[in-house]
């Protein structure tokens, strides 16, 4: 269950292909790519701060729980920090299971948990200055699904 926290960009296609190639006994591989979104039309960049040490621990713990609950054959989480431009990839998850229901559910679970349980904070810089992205109540509520 590799977990990577990095400032550098990653190649989503290459990561997905390598992950799928390594999951030899899987019947299903699900991938998700998170991208910097510009809702206002004036976003110049996003800064992602994180808590080195706790971030890796939290991601590994979330990935281990997903693997255990859905009997995953493999899981991958890559999350970037630092300065990102609109359209750039922020993070990806990949899950491999024998059947698609498990692979989809585990990917959904991973996304819900790393939104509000992995120590990342986003700050948006735009024409009107800078502002921290506020957590949404719906993000916390999403955890109760699991």
């Amino acid at each position: 269950m590799p977990v990577r926290v990095q400032a550098e960009p990653f190649d989503f296609g290459a990561e997905a292909a390598a992950f799928a190639a390594g999951a030899t006994s899987a019947g299903a591989v699900v991938t998700f790519l998170g991208v910097v979104r510009d809702d206002s039309g004036s976003l110049s960049r996003m800064e992602i701060e994180h808590y080195p040490g706790m971030t890796e621990r939290a991601l590994a713990s979330i990935a281990a729980e997903a693997t255990d609950r859905w009997h995953l054959l493999d899981a991958l989480v890559i999350h970037r920090h630092g300065s990102l431009l609109p359209g750039e990839a922020i993070m990806m998850v990949a899950t491999a299971a024998r059947h698609r229901a498990e692979a989809f559910a585990a990917a959904d679970f991973l996304m819900d948990y790393l939104k509000s349980r992995a120590p990342f904070w986003k700050k948006e810089f735009g024409a009107d200055g800078a502002a921290w992205v506020a957590a949404k109540d719906s993000d916390e509520d999403a955890l109760s699904r699991w």
Partner: peptide, 10 residues
């Protein structure tokens, strides 16, 4: 001990 606002990963 670490203090921070609610997290916004993903």
């Amino acid at each position: 001990v670490a203090f921070f606002p609610p997290m916004t990963g993903g």
